[in-house]
Design a protein around this nucleic acid. Structure first.
Length: 569
RNA sequence: CGGGGUGUGGCGCAGUUGGCUAGCGCGCUGCGUUUGGGACGCAGAGGCCGCAGGUUCGAAUCCUGCCACCCCGACCA
């Protein structure tokens, strides 16, 4: 490709609101343009990378026996209502009506459709496992987008679905996907953690996310510094400190206490001269129907809303507002850890393990001028739901080995899910077993975002000059830079090398622009990030200069030597 | 949805306390000089100042409404 003919040139200044390196560089390099918030155009250079990522993933899918197929972007609503996914997805699911008024959801994921598609073939045990994947656009009307193509409202995803006779067979395929995803990360040059995760609105009860460490990422994972335990903070377990373990259990006392002196946990801690983990902290959240959920933890911890939602079998929770609190007659800062019986099931309490295991706690039932101390769970109050609802923190002890956890900011690159019968039971997902009876198939699903993979790769592989593409997904293998092109001898020489490279089957971007200074050409080459730069000028004589994008040094070698260097690596 | 902010040639910005003909840099076009780390001169093209109303002799500038986009929270590949 001649750069002079390439559609989509580099630009010098990124937009001032572009914060992420990947956003800036993909824009400046001429890879992507934004149409509207979260919707991107891929220019030829960007599309080449995109296509290579699709192919790379496709190869790995075929290795594990998955077959490529495709389903429509418009999906009849009933495929979503059957499993209540329309509610679980809320406003991020986009809807559209056709001329006859029939309602459709825009492809946000494909579990329902694919499951029924498989079911229609009335599979027998001989047909299983069935593993399918596709690469089509997904529409997710995220309330907020950020970071360019890292998180879009319309994006391409490779999504895969698998169907199995037994859980054991499913686990084999799950492992295959786990390994395939690991290989994909490796080929993209992305160091990753495969962590246990919550599956959110997709349903299911077991999943792994492939998380790439990145300071500008949006996720946080907990990683043990001593063993291999790692999990999303929405899922990560950790050992609770046994508060006041060596004290005798004291009788609960109600004491006079001045609210203004002791409202927040810090103030209470100071007031009682006890550490924060001696305090009882209650935090209120709201379900989609407006009922409240109060999470109770020791004062040193934070309630994680995803863990809390999971504990009560809810999809998601919102933070309760002051108005919500007023509806049960309290103000923030004075929330009780028990009581409110008069509000019936409008209030649900969930107690964290930290409280269950602690002794002689403070607070939890402030009245006008009083507060209890030496509160012991089980004796002074008790709730039906006891669960792990606290957010892990840096230095918390690992549930597996007792070592210390570290928190790392990451980008979610891919996600694999175990659904068991969640979708098959709603979508007629039966197979005929050896004994001739119908049984539900076990199911899993697996996703990787293409644009996000591209952006993540740039996040990980760039320097202050531009992108450094891994060879496998680079838009071209060689960036041929011609200098002094107004000199006919040199011009002819470069043109010949360009032809030779093409004939050798090497993808080459040839900067054939005249009237452009060498500095600008080099700057563009660094920005675009093609693995090899080959320079021909009056200085190179009978040789050419070959330089790798990620190195400073270069070699001055004859053309055929240059070719063999490029082909060999 | 809650809080904060921005909309001015293709891009980045200034002008915004009501007054001159809307300006600067980059990019683009033409001519000439330049060619190993983002060259220079000269000459050009290109703008309903986000949209709609209003106030005024006069609006990019003031007022109202709308729209779009960005940043901070919940969501996700």
């Amino acid at each position: 490709m001649r750069y002079s003919k390439l559609f989509g040139k580099t630009v010098r200044d990124p937009k001032s609101d572009m914060k992420l390196a990947s956003h800036k560089l993909l824009y400046q390099g001429g890879f992507v343009r934004e149409l509207s918030a979260g919707r991107y155009e891929f220019l030829p250079l960007g599309y080449r990378v995109w296509q290579k990522i699709v192919n790379l993933i496709d190869e790995e899918m075929e290795k594990i026996g998955s077959q490529r197929m495709s389903i429509p972007l418009l999906q009849p609503m009933e495929y979503w209502t059957k499993t209540n996914r329309d509610k679980a997805w809320g406003s991020s699911l986009m809807k559209i009506k056709d001329a006859r008024g029939a309602e459709f959801a825009l492809s946000a994921t494909g579990e329902g459709i694919v499951t029924e598609m498989v079911a229609q073939t009335s599979p027998s045990y001989r047909d299983l496992p069935i593993i399918l994947h596709q690469t089509i656009n997904k529409f997710r009307d995220e309330i907020r987008v950020r970071g360019g193509i890292l998180r879009a409202r319309e994006f391409t995803m490779k999504d895969a679905y698998s169907y199995h006779e037994t859980q054991e067979d499913f686990m084999k395929t799950y492992k295959d996907f786990y390994d395939a995803y690991s290989r994909i990360c490796k080929r993209l040059g992305l160091p990753f953690y495969a962590v246990e995760a919550d599956s959110g609105a997709l349903g299911g009860d077991y999943s792994h996310e492939f998380q790439i460490p990145c300071d500008d990422g949006e996720d946080v994972i907990a990683v043990c510094t001593s063993c291999d335990y790692s999990a999303n903070v929405e899922k990560a377990q950790f050992v609770r400190e046994k508060v006041n373990e060596n004290e005798d259990v004291k009788d609960m006392e109600i004491i006079e206490q001045d609210w203004n002196e002791a409202r927040t946990i810090d103030q209470m801690s100071e007031f009682y001269h006890r550490p924060a983990n001696n305090m009882i902290k209650s935090v209120a959240f709201k379900r989609s129907d407006g009922r409240l959920v109060i999470g109770v933890v020791t004062g040193d911890l934070e309630v994680n809303d995803v863990k809390l939602a999971h504990a009560i079998g809810e999809g998601e929770l919102e933070k309760a507002t002051d108005e919500d609190l007023n509806s049960i007659g309290v103000t923030s800062g004075a929330l009780h850890a028990w009581g409110y019986g008069e509000f019936g099931d409008k209030v649900t309490f969930v107690v964290d393990t930290s409280i269950v295991e602690a002794k002689n706690l403070y607070g939890g039932n402030k009245l006008q001028t009083t507060d209890p101390q030496f509160v012991n769970y089980g004796r002074d109050f008790k709730h039906e739901i006891e669960a792990d609802i606290a957010q892990p923190y840096k230095g918390a002890h690992c549930i597996k080995c007792g070592g210390k956890l570290d928190l790392i900011r990451t980008i979610e690159f891919g996600h694999i899910f175990k659904y068991d019968h969640f979708y098959t039971s709603h979508h007629n997902g039966y197979f005929v077993d050896k004994d001739g009876t119908k049984k539900l198939m076990y199911m899993g699903a697996y996703g990787i975002g293409i644009g996000r993979s591209m952006a993540t790769t740039v996040e990980v592989h760039h320097d202050d000059r531009g992108i450094i593409w891994p060879t496998e997904i680079a838009p071209y293998r060689v960036h041929l830079v011609g200098l002094n092109l107004d000199d006919d001898t040199i011009k002819l020489k470069v043109e010949k090398i360009y032809e030779d490279l093409l004939r050798a089957g090497i993808e080459v971007l040839y900067d054939d622009r005249t009237e452009i200074s060498p500095g600008e050409k080099f700057a563009d080459a660094d920005l675009i990030g093609i693995p090899y730069r080959m320079v021909v000028s009056k200085k190179t004589g009978d040789n050419v200069e070959v330089k790798k994008r990620d190195r400073k040094d270069f070699e001055l070698v004859p053309v055929d030597k240059a070719l063999s260097i490029i082909i060999s690596q």
